[in-house]
Simulated assay, not measured.
Amino acid sequence: MEPLTEHRQVSGPVVYGFQRLVRVSTARQPALTGLLVEYCRHHELRLSGVCSERATSAGPSSAAFTGLLDVLALSDVYGVVAPAMSHVGPKAIAAERERHIAAAGSCLPWIRRPRPQHPSASPGAPVRRRPAAIRALGTESRGPR
């Protein structure tokens, strides 16, 4: 009988990390890299490297991003992971960079997605949430008691 996939040395899709470390303390930098590593481990991706941008004046074609595009051109690369949308750059730069990543045929999942705003909530107002109904999986509905 063949062993289960979990017991074989299976290599996940190859990804590269990208992080923008402008105004990030030196103590926080390893934590962000660790976030990328943990995300990839959890999602069975193989993190082959991390490109880090540290310059505030870096435009859309910074050295770090150009290096990222170079590795995305390799045939076995699945995509790029970033801690959050802000790590790709300010909005105008990020939009252009996202187009370059898509043109390279790569995906770009965010580890932390932006939180959606409730349309009726005003900024600064407390958000009231109702507790979600909890349903046990694998149980049958028995109707009202």
Rank of each mutant, 00 (worst) to 15 (best):
S141W: 10
T139W: 12
S106T: 01
E38G: 02
H87K: 07
V50K: 02
A31H: 08
H43R: 09
A92N: 15
Q19F: 08
T5W: 04
E96K: 04
R8C: 11
S120H: 09
V71L: 02
A27I: 05
G124M: 07
L36F: 04
V80H: 09
P83F: 15
A73T: 01
F18C: 04
F65Q: 10
I101T: 02
F18S: 02
C107S: 13
R99S: 07
H87R: 06
G34F: 09
G59P: 03
S61R: 01
R28L: 13
G17C: 00
S62L: 10
A132P: 00
P3G: 02
D70H: 05
L47W: 07
P131I: 00
P144N: 13
R112I: 09
V24I: 15
A121W: 11
A55Q: 07
G34P: 02
A121V: 11
H87W: 03
R28K: 14
A55L: 06
R115Y: 13
E140I: 07
V80I: 07
A63H: 09
P119W: 10
V14Y: 08
L137A: 14
P126M: 08
V24W: 10
E38F: 02
R41A: 12
L69S: 05
A31F: 09
E140L: 13
R115S: 10
V71F: 09
S52F: 00
S62A: 12
V88F: 03
L35V: 01
V24A: 10
V127A: 08
R128Q: 12
S11E: 15
T139P: 04
E98C: 14
E38A: 09
L74A: 15
E96F: 03
R128Y: 14
I93A: 15
E38L: 02
E38P: 00
V88W: 03
R142S: 08
G89F: 01
C40N: 04
G79R: 11
P3T: 03
G34L: 04
Q117T: 12
R99H: 15
R46L: 04
R128M: 11
G89Y: 02
R113G: 05
V22N: 06
L21G: 04
S25T: 14
L74C: 14
G17K: 07
L74W: 14
G124A: 08
G59L: 00
T26N: 13
V15T: 06
R113A: 05
R99L: 09
P109G: 06
I111R: 08
A27G: 05
G12A: 10
S75Q: 15
R128E: 11
L4K: 07
A103S: 13
I134P: 00
C40G: 00
A27L: 04
P3N: 04
S106A: 14
L4M: 11
L108C: 06
P30Q: 00
P90V: 07
E96S: 03
R130G: 00
S141K: 11
V10E: 03
L32C: 04
M1L: 12
M85W: 15
R130D: 08
V14F: 08
A121L: 14
I93Q: 11
